[in-house]
């Protein structure tokens, strides 16, 4: 379960690369390649080890022109997708 207090970090077994402002992530154990647009790539880039979900929301709110509710909704949806693809660890 992903909440505002959850801590997330990038899965170190997932190679990734920023190519012309977009991101390509490789999840070998799921046999998936994940392509993130420039907004997704910026959010992905902002994830450090043990980043709180609330900090990601704050980052989206400050970086992009969205209100706080929309930032929270978008962030949770985006992170849920990354969690399902096992490219982030959640604690």
């Amino acid at each position: 379960m992903l909440t505002l207090d959850s801590c997330i970090g990038r899965n170190n077994d997932v190679p990734w690369r920023i190519i012309e402002e977009e991101a390509v992530l490789v999840s070998v154990d799921r046999g998936e390649v994940i392509h993130l647009n420039s907004v997704g790539a910026q959010i992905w880039n902002s994830i450090e080890s043990k980043t709180k979900v609330s900090e990601i929301i704050e980052y989206i709110y400050e970086t992009f022109d969205v209100d706080k509710d929309a930032a929270a909704k978008d962030a949770l949806e985006f992170l849920k997708r990354l969690k399902e693809a096992r490219v982030i660890d959640v604690s």
């Binding site: 190679p15 190519i19 012309e20 977009e22 390509v24 490789v26 070998v28 390649v33």
Partner: peptide, 22 residues
Amino acid sequence: KPSLAASRIIHDASLFLDTSIN
């Protein structure tokens, strides 16, 4: 565009378990 092409190439590449090789 390059990022999309990279995703498509990786999708068809032979990747196995070694993270540093990948």
